[in-house]
Design a protein around this nucleic acid. Sequence first.
RNA 1: GGCGCGUUCGUCUAGUGGCUUAGGACGCCGCCCUCUCAAGGCGGAGAUCACGGGUUCGAAUCCCGUACGCGCUACCA
Length: 485
Amino acid sequence: MENKIRVRFAPSPTGYLHVGGLRTALYNFLFARKNNGKFILRIEDTDRNRYVEGAVENLIKALKWSGLDYDEGPDIGGDYGPYMQSQRLDIYKKYADELIASGNAYYCFCTQERLQQLREEQEKLKVPQMKYDKHCLTLTQEEIQKRLNEKIPFVIRLNVQPNQKIIFDDVVRKRVEFDSSNIDDQVLIKSDGYPTYHLANVIDDHLMEISHVIRGEEWLSSTPKHVILYDAFGWQRPIFAHLPLLLNPDKSKLSKRQGDVAVEDYRDKGYLKEALINFVALLGWNAGDDKEFYQMNELIEAFSLESVNKSGAVFDIVKLNSLNAEHLRHKSDKEILLLLKEEIKKSDLAQKNLSDDYLLLVISAMKERVTFVSEFITNCKYFYEEPKEYEQKSIEKNWKSDTAEHLNKLIDEFSKLENSQKVDFESALNKVAEELEISKGKLIHPLRLAVSGQSTGPGMFDLLFILGKDEVIKRIQKAIEKIKI
RNA sequence: GGCGCGUUCGUCUAGUGGCUUAGGACGCCGCCCUCUCAAGGCGGAGAUCACGGGUUCGAAUCCCGUACGCGCUACCA
């Protein structure tokens, strides 16, 4: 099969999945699914200093939670493995040697001290572009061998030819051009034998037959180095697509300091994966119409790299919240029940024996009034326990001198009820209102306060029905006792 | 400093030379619905399309310059 689509998400395991990473992973995923391609997870763990215990597991967990399932990866294998760069060291070594043989790379024995000194000198001279001075390129074969034999630490550097135009196409940015004179002789193999990102990335993308490199814009500046490598190896370049950055409200690159950046933070705060995915998809992409509410399958259907934006997008949590509420409303009551039961397990309601039928009633009453699943608990405690206190403002507004008397009448009427469906409560209340010659509202507001302790909530008769006749009467009595004006 | 990328309502965005008195969404305000709060419906405020020059009969849309922002500038990714 010609032109098969293979894309990859290649994070370095820093401990958690960044929402920017989620967006990158999502676009890769959508592109693959849309085009019948393969989506690959590759772990770029070539920096031993930044190794974090459990990071890979966390990453995989977050990806799975988000619904971004990959076709090949470290935990599931595939024909192009291993998918952990730390397990591919011999591969990088082999290709680095090849580069040295062809003159495209060279050994460098310079010490950190010399490099530091060089940098300082260049700074003093106000050299426009600070670069390595190719000092070790002049070493003879014998000198190199001697140092190798003496086990002097070395790195392998890319031998960049100056004064070349490096031009490549980017799906998002169109044509991008660099002058190779501005490109440093990048270290490809570090002195610990590990490759740098640039080398490992290019080799793996080629070996894994990656067709499209879809990654964040922070990589655009190093793409010419990658292009030089592809050309040096004589390999076909992939198609590049550099995604606009996710930004803090102050427009800087989205960072930990200004809010949550980990996918797991959002998950733990109760955001639905559907909402997070939908939100993040819209940060830098739009199908060209007004549609903003998407399920995953619709995203796959609508996605195209060509309609990705160029400019960075501020991560605005307020919009995420509204999408969360909307996705919640779109779920069936039964789906929400499952989520709510999980939430209850974590709450102080855990011991209560709440039936599914009861919770389903609560869900249908509250569904359009909540943003998070947890609010089925916190915003309507009165469904689970009688009110401990009564909203002062509502007392002032709705509790008059004759309120107790009115409510006693309601108790009488409710007590007589043989059926206690919504309509039964309603007609009972209507009857009382008529007898007292007052408006329904005059009854309903204090009744709501008595029964829920609050002034807001679902329709009155829904509330009464859900709580049940006995509980309602009990609560009214209690309120009459407790509320004094 | 150098190199690169970007710039449409507060935010996410539509717009690819005339359909645009620049459309939608979130947020904000108001009205309707209504027992409250939501949801829903309707309406409003909010962008001289960063700025300045061109090209053109005509520009948010094409070109040039400037400003500003961001990214990169590591033996980090």
